[in-house]
Computed example of a mutant assay.
Amino acid sequence: MSNNHPSERLDVNGSVAVVTGGASGIGKGIVTALLQRGATVVVADIEADTTEAAVAELSPLGSVSGWPTDVTDEHSVAALADHVYEAHGACHLLFNNAGVTSGGGGKPWEQEPNDWRWCFGVNVFGVAIGVCEFVPRMLAGGLPGQIINTSSGDGGFAPVPTASVYASSKAAVSCFTEALHTNLIREGSDLRASVLYPSGGMMDTGLFSAQRNRPAHLARVGSGTGRASMTFDELKAMMAEARGVEPEVADLVEHGNFVVDCVEERRFIIGRNIEDTVALLHRRADAIGRYEVPDHHDMGL
């Protein structure tokens, strides 16, 4: 097999998939879609109760189990990988999806070091640790597979200035995924990477209340930016006021099916409605060519 030409499609039916942050939001939508297509799914999530509830709810759809996992801890992720390979003998699809905000945004110099540690620990180190623990085993198995890392248009394409820490973390995910994909090809493997840009409407996810899982040792020690994380409803109201119309809210199961469609097609970029983003990227490139500050991403605000 040429290392530039992987299997044309992946057959999700009969595959083994791991989804971090899979007990709610975008991850749960992906888990649902995978089960509907005959995959065996391991839901890895830091919240044991939420994971248990999600597994109970989704069990009628197919073979699904849960494994409490802290993606910032390599020992926890190694235990997850051990479990997956002991229970199922393989991992074909790895969704590094768990993510958090920094806890408030605002002025970059008012974000605290612990905001960086918390956000990068989950969003960047979580992806890196997942790759380090699973990819060597996936390579050794010699089977076709895909590693899907969740980024964001905020940072992955261009930053929202008031979300500097979060945007920086998602820029790192996009850059890392591109490097990962290139190295998987050079390895001569039938593994490939994808970067997911959730799109097609606002996403009602646990991202907006992620502070509930913030470790005490990474708590803010000062006033920070003076802003707390917004709830989904608060952000929706802000966007409605800014635009003058109610924003579109995505159906997370439908979005999950779109993501799995793209995985089956082995697409590198997984996202929707990126025409405006392409125009933004052209403007950014032109500005860089003039040694100027590129346009930022306003995310509709």
Rank of each mutant, 00 (worst) to 15 (best):
D49E: 15
E178Q: 12
L184H: 07
V100T: 15
S76E: 09
A98R: 12
C132S: 13
H181F: 05
A48I: 11
T51P: 00
V160H: 03
G103F: 00
W67P: 00
M138V: 07
D45K: 10
F176D: 01
T150G: 01
T162N: 04
H75P: 00
G66F: 11
P108S: 14
D49P: 02
E187W: 04
W67R: 13
W118S: 01
G156S: 07
V84Q: 11
I46V: 15
S168H: 02
E74T: 12
V135K: 14
G142E: 09
Q111W: 03
S63A: 10
S168M: 08
P144S: 05
N149Q: 03
L61I: 00
S189H: 06
C132G: 02
R137V: 03
T101C: 11
N96K: 11
N183H: 12
W116G: 02
L180K: 14
G188H: 13
R192S: 15
P144F: 03
E74N: 11
V55M: 08
I46E: 01
V77I: 12
N149M: 06
G99H: 11
V173D: 01
G104Y: 12
R192Q: 14
G62I: 01
L180Y: 06
P68Q: 08
T101P: 00
V135R: 13
G145F: 14
G142N: 13
F125Q: 13
P136W: 13
G103D: 02
L80R: 07
A48W: 05
S151R: 11
D154R: 02
G141I: 11
A79P: 02
G153E: 09
V131L: 07
P60C: 05
D70I: 11
G156N: 05
D190P: 05
R186H: 09
G62F: 01
V100N: 06
N114E: 13
G106Q: 06
T51F: 00
P144G: 00
L184Q: 03
A78K: 14
H92L: 04
L191P: 04
G155H: 08
S164P: 04
P68G: 08
V131Y: 04
E74P: 04
L61C: 00
L93S: 07
F134D: 06
G104M: 14
N123F: 09
A56K: 11
L58K: 05
C119R: 10
A78V: 09
V173A: 00
H88P: 02
S174C: 03
A128I: 10
T50H: 08
T162Q: 04
I46N: 02
G153T: 09
E112G: 06
T101L: 15
E112C: 07
V84D: 04
W118K: 04
A172V: 01
R137N: 05
A163Q: 14
I185L: 13
L180N: 12
S59C: 00
D154H: 02
H92Y: 05
E110A: 15
P113F: 10
V173G: 02
G62K: 00
L143G: 00
A167N: 02
S102W: 05
S174E: 10
T69Y: 08
S59V: 00
T162V: 05
R117L: 14
D190T: 07
H83W: 08
A128R: 10
E133Q: 15
N96W: 07
A90Q: 15
G156C: 09
F157R: 11
L191D: 07
P60H: 03
